[in-house]
């Protein structure tokens, strides 16, 4: 269980890191996904570039209601509430339930996204939150929505000369409500099903997402009316969600659909149980329409 021999360097600043990246180095931040894959020799890199300490990847700020989180911010930092909270506690909740504390102390938000395990929490939670990823190469910065960024399991739009610098959330209002439910065989294991519901009437953003489906996160279509209260009877909700999933995943087995329906239904109930502010109580202004 030892990795292959490779070269290693610690990035000193962003331009130097981008040059090393263009020369073919593989970025490592916390290494909590890459570490196991190195030990198992699933990944056999020529050279690794450590980026976890780069100021440009730690920089986090809140500008006009939009929270930009540096890619090298750890799960534990998010869990502990170091960042300003614009999501009514959703980021902290999601962070707290990622793997184990010892992993969260080192693992990073950006590392998890770049690794892009379909059952990973941030891949699904940030898609449901309508986040953008900020990618940088030596020439330019570009922004992608999460569905543009996530191409498939362990496959992203990140180019071989690019680095994932940060994630930016929309300017949510206090009307934001959310639900996040994952089904795991054991606390901290990768999820068998993830259901995410995010609804911000103030921003006009509503998302029902089914995750950990061994493919890209699934934006469940035609069910956002369920976010209106009162919620129909449980059987009706299950039926509606089941129909929607079967329509979008026609080859899925019944037990698979059932598990994901349960995760979605519980996320929906968690979301609707939250009080939710009104849109005019907005913490921040809505972004100017672009």
């Amino acid at each position: 269980m030892k990795p292959v021999a490779f070269n290693w360097q610690r990035a000193t600043d962003l331009p130097q890191a981008l040059r090393a990246r263009a020369d073919g180095a593989l970025c490592i931040a916390g290494g909590q996904s890459l570490g196991p894959m190195l030990n198992l020799r699933l990944v056999q890199p020529q050279s690794l570039l450590e980026v976890r300490q780069l100021a440009a990847m730690r920089a986090t700020n809140l500008l006009q209601g939009r929270l930009r989180i540096g890619a090298a911010v750890t799960h534990a930092e998010i869990e502990d509430g170091v960042l300003p909270d614009t999501t009514q506690g959703m980021l902290r909740y999601v962070a707290r339930n990622i793997a184990y504390r010892a992993i969260r102390n080192r693992g990073t938000l950006g590392g998890s996204l770049a690794h892009c395990d379909p059952a990973a929490d941030w891949v699904n939670a940030l898609t449901a939150l309508g986040a953008q990823v900020i990618l940088q190469n030596a020439k330019q910065e570009r922004r992608l929505s999460m569905p543009e960024f996530v191409r498939g399991p362990f496959h992203t739009a990140l180019q071989s000369d690019e680095m994932l610098l940060a994630v930016e959330l929309p300017a949510f209002t206090t009307a934001l409500r959310w639900g996040y439910y994952k089904i795991c065989a054991k606390v901290g294991e990768f999820a068998d099903a993830i259901g995410v519901v995010v609804s911000d009437p103030g921003l006009g953003w509503h998302c029902v997402l089914s995750g950990a489906i061994e493919a890209r996160p699934l934006l469940v279509q035609g069910v956002t009316d369920l976010l209106q209260q009162p919620l129909p009877a449980a059987e009706v909700v299950r039926l509606r969600l089941g129909q929607a999933l079967q329509e979008q995943l026609p080859n899925a087995e019944a037990v698979f659909v059932h598990r994901h329906v349960v995760a979605l239904q519980r996320a929906l109930m968690q979301c609707l149980a939250q009080p939710g502010g009104t849109a005019d109580q907005a913490v921040t202004k809505k972004p100017e329409s672009a």
């Binding site: 610690r10 490592i28 290494g31 909590q32 570490g35 030990n39 102390n105 080192r106």
Partner: peptide
């Protein structure tokens, strides 16, 4: 590979896995 926790040590004061953390880092 980071699952069992037997190798957990403090790095800069917080518990972390020493089996999937490179000495270099």
């Amino acid at each position: 590979h980071g699952v069992c926790g037997a190798c957990t040590v403090l790095i800069d004061g917080t518990p972390q896995r020493s089996c999937i953390t490179l000495a270099a880092s």
